[in-house]
Write a protein that binds this DNA or RNA. Structure first.
Lengths: 249, 249
DNA sequence: CGCAGTATTGAAATTTCTCAAGCCGAGTGG
DNA sequence: CCACTCGGCTTGAGAAATTTCAATACTGCG
């Protein structure tokens, strides 16, 4: 008999455990402690904000399905997307330490999330240090991805930027077991890609067409299709090392 | 009598303790444990690399004086600066968890650093969890600064970008007690600013001239001078919240 | 005093953006 | 069942920002 009647609550523990297991070494007591968490799960509609810049959340979110994004809002109202997140990601775990949100998190499509109360997480980390260390490692990986985004926006050509984002997204989906052959979900519109990459929407459109014409990759109705992975990697200058995927001995 | 004959080793503990104290609550046992560390200190010449992309360091660096920078090297050989660091910063503490460096760290001017062996840090964190938590919080702040850089490079005008970098640098120096009136050290050449902001050197030059002409800020011989802080903040759209400076109750 | 590395200037070339119009496909209601 | 409508995608052309290139002026150090 499962510890919780609600299967989506169990899914939270499963996702959290598998994520954490990739970044640390857990004992059975660690696992048991995770399974004692009592998250609340809920659905979020596409476009809806989950937390906003300036908020002081008392829960941390873990994504169960769908895609979330972090973004900044500038004084002008302009939006800069910072990262896109897939099932298993915890985009605002920082709120456990940084009381005021410096960015917002929204849903890019209809999504399901689990909300883990800060106090539960804090005591989990206190009592099971191995979990804390694994989550800390995740924080470092997160930072590495941000660094790569700086480089992407700053030093790569328009085409390479888009290609790099596609590589990253596909590779991360692959790691999470979320690809379907050459496809993965990427429910992002062209205008939003522009807001992620610092480009005008038209420029995104033209770059997408070039990737399509060159038979490298294609984005259509929220699905990313990889047509030529080696070719795409080459155009992007993509080296997955920065994703720090496998825990090393 | 000081625990170490070498005063610069003591400076490591001092800097580390004051940094950590800002991000956590320490007991005297925590402080004692930090003072037991036996870092090696050394000088680094301007331009010299401290760690390189691909390295597997077994120490973490804490900056004692001077300025360090993190940067990516692209396949093309192009360089993207990711962040600039001042005394007290630990730019590669991630190496404790991520065995392979995804970026390099170099000295922008002659600098002094302390090298903390990973095994000492690991056991410090294990035995004194409060220190681990404070360092973890620092990691989150670090990530927040990276996010801001993404937004800076992606969504702000050339002039605002430069102004924002200046605001951030001055504000961080102020926090660290490293300003001298309206001045702070910023030993970065125009070409390097370009490599940080994703701009051509000429564009940096013209933006610098505009900031100077508008009597907002001036960069000369490695010193940043703030001429009009409110004006600069306005142009930059700078809001220091993302630095998460003060630990909240 | 002179060199080497930076900073500055100007003008042309290129990229990227803006604007504006047309297209296309999915969901909708007559 | 099909025209309608809306949002998002595409296209083209002109405008603007940024880069490139190349030449000239600084400046600090040896």
């Amino acid at each position: 008999m499962p510890p919780h009647p609600d299967p989506s609550i169990e899914r939270v523990s499963e996702l959290l455990l598998s994520k954490v297991a990739l970044h640390g070494t857990l004992e059975s007591a660690d696992e048991a402690a995770v399974r004692k968490l009592t998250p609340r799960t809920r659905s979020v509609a596409a476009g809806e904000d989950i937390v906003r810049q300036g908020d002081r959340p008392n829960v941390a979110v873990i994504l169960l399905s769908g895609m979330l994004a972090r973004y900044h809002t500038l004084e002008t109202g302009a939006r800069q997307y910072l990262s896109f997140h897939i099932a298993g990601d915890m985009p605002d775990i920082q709120s456990l330490f940084l009381s005021v949100m410096d960015h917002s998190v929204c849903a890019m499509n209809d999504a399901k999330i689990g909300a883990l109360p800060h106090d539960q997480l804090a005591s989990l980390i206190r009592t099971r240090p191995a979990i804390g260390l694994a989550l800390w490692r995740l924080t470092f990986v997160d930072a590495s991805v941000f660094r790569q985004a700086i480089t992407n926006n700053g030093a790569r050509s328009l085409l390479a930027r888009l290609a790099h984002l596609f590589c990253e997204q596909y590779e991360r989906a692959r790691q999470a077991g979320l690809i379907d052959g050459r496809y993965c979900d990427f429910p992002i519109r062209q205008a939003q890609l522009g807001q992620a990459l610092g480009l005008a929407p038209v420029s995104v459109n033209r770059a997408l067409q070039k990737l399509r014409r060159d038979r490298l990759a294609e984005l259509r109705s929220g699905k990313l299709e990889i047509l030529d992975w080696p070719g795409l990697i080459k155009v992007a200058g993509f080296d997955p090392a920065y994703l720090h995927l496998k825990r090393e001995p």
